[in-house]
Design a protein around this nucleic acid. Structure first.
Lengths: 189, 189
DNA sequence: TGCCCTTTCCTAAAAATGTTAGGCAAGCCG
DNA sequence: CGGCTTGCCTAACATTTTTAGGAAAGGGCA
C-alpha cells in the first residue's frame, strides 16, 4: 500500500480548507483523516492532538492575514491605508470564513507572542501614524479599530446584514468615512 | 428512588450557569446530567438534543440582556442612553461570559425572529432617536454600534486589553465619547 | 543489487459524548 | 387504593479523541 504523504504542513493546510468549507468548529481529526483517506491514528505522528491542529490553523490564518495586510498597506497612508487595512480583514473573512474564525482562537500568551498577531498590532499602529494621535489616544484608537473591524466582520459573517437595505458595502464605506473623520478630529462630511 | 425534579426550565438555567463557569462550548448534555446527578439519557425527555439546549440558553441570555437594556434605557436619552445601553452589554458579558457567548449563537431565522433579538434592535433604534439621523444613516449607525459593542466586548473578554495601559475602562469611555460625537456630527472635545 | 533502519501508517483498545429504544416505578387523579 | 402518565433508568450503538504497539515502505549504504 503506497503512503499517503502526510506532513504537518499538508494537514494544516487541508484543515484550513476544511474549516472554510464546514466551519472551524467542525474541524476534527477524524474529518481530516477521512479527507486523506487514512486512519485517524495516523495523524498523531504529525499533530500533537486536536487542539494542536486548531492552533496551527489559527497561526496559518494569522500569517496569511498579516501578509495580505502588509501588501495592502504598502505605499498607502491616511484614509487610504485605513480603508485598505480594513478591507483586508473583511475580504479575508468573506473568502475564508473558517480561517477567519480560526484567527480568533484564543492562543496562550507565548504562542500569541510568537505569532503573526504581533505584526497585526504593528500594522495597526502604522495606519494610525497617519493621524495625529498621541498616547494614550493611539491605544484607544487601536482598540476602537480592532473592535469595529472584528465586530463588523463577525456580524456580517453571521448573516446579520444580509437581506436588509441598505446593503452591507454601503454601510461599510459609511463607517470607514466616519472613523477617518473621528480619528482626525473632524466632523464627517 | 426520589425523582430529581427536572424540567426544561431548570435544565436551561443550570446550563446557563454551567456556561458561565466553564465556557459556552464546554456546555454538554453529559456535564449537565452530572450536575443534576442523573443519567444522561434522562435529559432527553426535556431537551430535544444538545443543539436544542444551546439554543435555549441563547434565548435565555437574549431575554436577560434585553430586560437589562430596557431597564437601563428607561428615562434616558442622548449620550446618557448610549452609554447606559453600551454598559449593559459590557457588564453582562463580564458577569456572564458564558451566557454572552450563548447570545452570539447563530439562530435559524424563525427562531431569531421570535427571540428577544428583535427587542434589541428596537432599543438600539430608540437610542439613536436621540440623534438626528435619517435613513439610511440610522441603519448604518445601528450596524456601527452593534459592531463596536460586540467587537469591544468580545476582545475584552478574550483578554485583549488586560495587562496593558491604559486600562480598559478608560478606553471604553473614550470610545463612547467619540461615538456620541460622531453620531451628532461634531468633532470630539 | 540487496539489506537495514527509520519513519509512516496501521490495528486495537479505552474513554467521553450524543442519541435512541424500551422498561420500571413514582406519584397524581379519580 | 388501583390505574395511568410521565420521569428517570438500563442498554446499546455511533462518533470523536487519544495511546500503545506492530508491519511494511522506501531511502541509505555496502
Amino acid at each position: 500500500m503506497p503512503r499517503a504523504g502526510l506532513t504537518t504542513d499538508r494537514l494544516v493546510r487541508a484543515g484550513a480548507e476544511l474549516a472554510d468549507e464546514v466551519g472551524f468548529d467542525q474541524v476534527t481529526v477524524s474529518a481530516l483523516a477521512r479527507r486523506f483517506d487514512v486512519k485517524v491514528a495516523s495523524l498523531y505522528s504529525h499533530l500533537e492532538n486536536s487542539q494542536d491542529l486548531k492552533t496551527r490553523i489559527a497561526l496559518l490564518a494569522l500569517e496569511e492575514l498579516a501578509d495580505r495586510a502588509a501588501d495592502a498597506l504598502a505605499g498607502r497612508a491616511g484614509r487610504d491605508a485605513l480603508a485598505a487595512f480594513a478591507d483586508v480583514y473583511r475580504d479575508y473573512a468573506r473568502e475564508h470564513p473558517g480561517r477567519y474564525a480560526a484567527a480568533r482562537l484564543r492562543l496562550d500568551p507565548e504562542t500569541a507572542a510568537a505569532s503573526a498577531g504581533v505584526r497585526h498590532a504593528q500594522m495597526m499602529r502604522a495606519v494610525l501614524r497617519g493621524y495625529d494621535l498621541t498616547e494614550p489616544e493611539q491605544t484607544h484608537a487601536v482598540r476602537l479599530l480592532g473592535s469595529v473591524f472584528h465586530g463588523y466582520v463577525s456580524l456580517e459573517l453571521a448573516g446579520g446584514f444580509s437581506h436588509s437595505a441598505p446593503d452591507s458595502q454601503e454601510t461599510w464605506e459609511w463607517i470607514l468615512d466616519r472613523l477617518d473623520a473621528l480619528l482626525r478630529g473632524r466632523p464627517a462630511t
